[in-house]
């Protein structure tokens, strides 16, 4: 399979744009899935995953053909997702009280898809619950947990995608897993 992709990449580099379509078709579900896991929104996932393919096409010359193409593609997609998440982040603290209200804090201002009441969470189907809990993880653990357990990637591959030392990835898997256990247990 990898050989076929390498061949297609070479064809695209030689000017055959149609060969790129085959690459898109081959990776579309995997890339869309990882974007969806990170962003938890179908429209945004489609937008970012498509953008990732466009970036891959435009920057194909910079791809090192000795490495795995999927790793490179995942890297583009996860970077785009992380950027998107950062832009969405409000720059105020949730625990800060809202001025002019009587002790009301920012938690009360959040839309429902960010934080749900406990009863709601308990009624969730398990698969939705997992997605919900993963999205509540701190950024640095979330990406790694998604790649490790939702995409089923090896630790070394995750390190390559995120351009991090393997040791850092291991530590974050440990901490992310522990954080997730506590979140699940607290309910």
């Amino acid at each position: 399979m990898d050989e076929l992709i390498t061949k297609r990449v070479k064809e695209v580099l030689n000017g055959n744009q149609e060969a790129f379509e085959e690459i898109v078709i081959h990776f579309q579900h995997r890339l869309y899935q990882v974007c969806y896991r990170m962003l938890n929104n179908t429209a945004e996932a489609e937008d970012i995953a498509q953008e990732a393919f466009v970036r891959a096409y435009v920057n194909l010359e910079t791809y090192d053909q000795k490495r795995k193409f999927s790793t490179w593609l995942y890297r583009i997609a996860t970077n785009l997702c992380i950027d998107r998440i950062r832009k969405k982040k409000p720059d105020y603290y949730l625990d800060a009280t809202v001025p002019g209200t009587d002790g009301l804090n920012m938690y009360s201002q959040l839309s429902t898809d960010q934080q749900l009441p406990e009863e709601e969470v308990e009624k969730m189907e398990m698969k939705d619950r997992v997605q919900y809990e993963v999205n509540r993880l701190p950024d640095k653990y979330r990406t790694i947990i998604i790649l490790r357990y939702m995409e089923d990637l090896q630790l070394q591959e995750i390190a390559d995608i995120l351009e991090m030392p393997l040791g850092t990835v291991k530590t974050r898997v440990h901490r992310g897993r522990e954080a997730l256990r506590q979140q699940m247990g607290s309910m």
Partner: peptide, 17 residues
């Protein structure tokens, strides 16, 4: 397992410069 929506690849092709 989540799949990309129908027309995803066409969407990419349309966005390619």
């Amino acid at each position: 397992v989540i799949e990309a929506p129908v027309g995803f690849a066409t969407g990419v092709a349309a966005r390619l410069p």
